[in-house]
Simulated scan of single mutants.
Amino acid sequence: MKKFLKLAAMTAVTLGSAFGPHMAAAQDEMRIGTASLGGAYYPMGQALSNSINEFADGYTMVPIVTGGGAENPRLIASGEVEVAIAPASLSYFAHQGKGPYPDALDIRAIGTLHSSILHMVTLPGSGIESIEDLRGKRLAVGPAGGGTLNILRDLLTLHDMTLDDITPSFVSYSDGFSQLTDGAVDASFALAGFPTGAVIQAQAMNELEFIELSDDKMAELLETFPYYSQTDVPTDVYGTVDPINVIASANLLIASADMSDELAFTIAEAIYDHMDALIAESALAAGIVPENSLTLPIPLHPGAATYFEGRN
Rank of each mutant, 00 (worst) to 15 (best):
P21Y: 13
I85S: 07
T60R: 03
F55N: 14
S78Y: 04
S17K: 15
M44Q: 14
I32N: 09
E29W: 08
G33F: 01
A25T: 12
G16Q: 10
P73E: 01
A26T: 12
A18H: 09
A25F: 09
P21W: 11
G68W: 03
V65P: 02
E80P: 03
V81F: 01
E54T: 13
D57L: 08
M44W: 15
L48T: 03
G79S: 00
Y42T: 00
E29F: 09
E82I: 04
V65M: 01
G39Y: 03
F55E: 10
P21I: 12
Q46D: 13
Y42E: 04
I52H: 12
S17I: 08
P21G: 15
V83H: 06
I85N: 04
I32R: 09
A47K: 02
A35I: 07
S36C: 13
F55L: 06
P73K: 02
G33D: 02
Y42I: 00
M30S: 09
L48V: 07
A47F: 01
V83K: 05
M30N: 06
A40D: 11
T60H: 04
N53P: 14
L75G: 00
R74K: 12
I85A: 06
M23K: 13
N53R: 12
N72M: 05
G58S: 07
A47M: 05
V83L: 11
A40K: 02
L37H: 04
T66Y: 02
T66G: 02
T66A: 01
F19G: 12
E71S: 04
M44K: 15
I85Y: 05
A26K: 15
Q46I: 07
A24H: 10
P21Q: 13
A24D: 10
A70Y: 06
I76R: 05
V81G: 00
A84K: 10
T66P: 04
A40S: 15
A77G: 07
M61R: 13
A35V: 06
A70L: 08
A18L: 07
A40C: 08
D57C: 08
V62N: 06
M23R: 13
D28N: 15
V62D: 03
V81N: 02
E29A: 10
V83N: 07
M23E: 13
G16E: 10
V62M: 05
N72F: 06
T60Y: 00
V81W: 00
Y41T: 07
I52P: 07
Y41C: 12
P73G: 00
R74N: 10
A77N: 10
I76Q: 06
N72E: 07
G67V: 01
P63G: 02
P43E: 09
N53L: 12
G69S: 12
M30E: 05
A35Q: 13
I76G: 03
V62P: 03
A25W: 09
Q27A: 14
Y41R: 12
A84E: 11
S49T: 10
G20L: 11
M30K: 04
Q27D: 12
G67D: 03
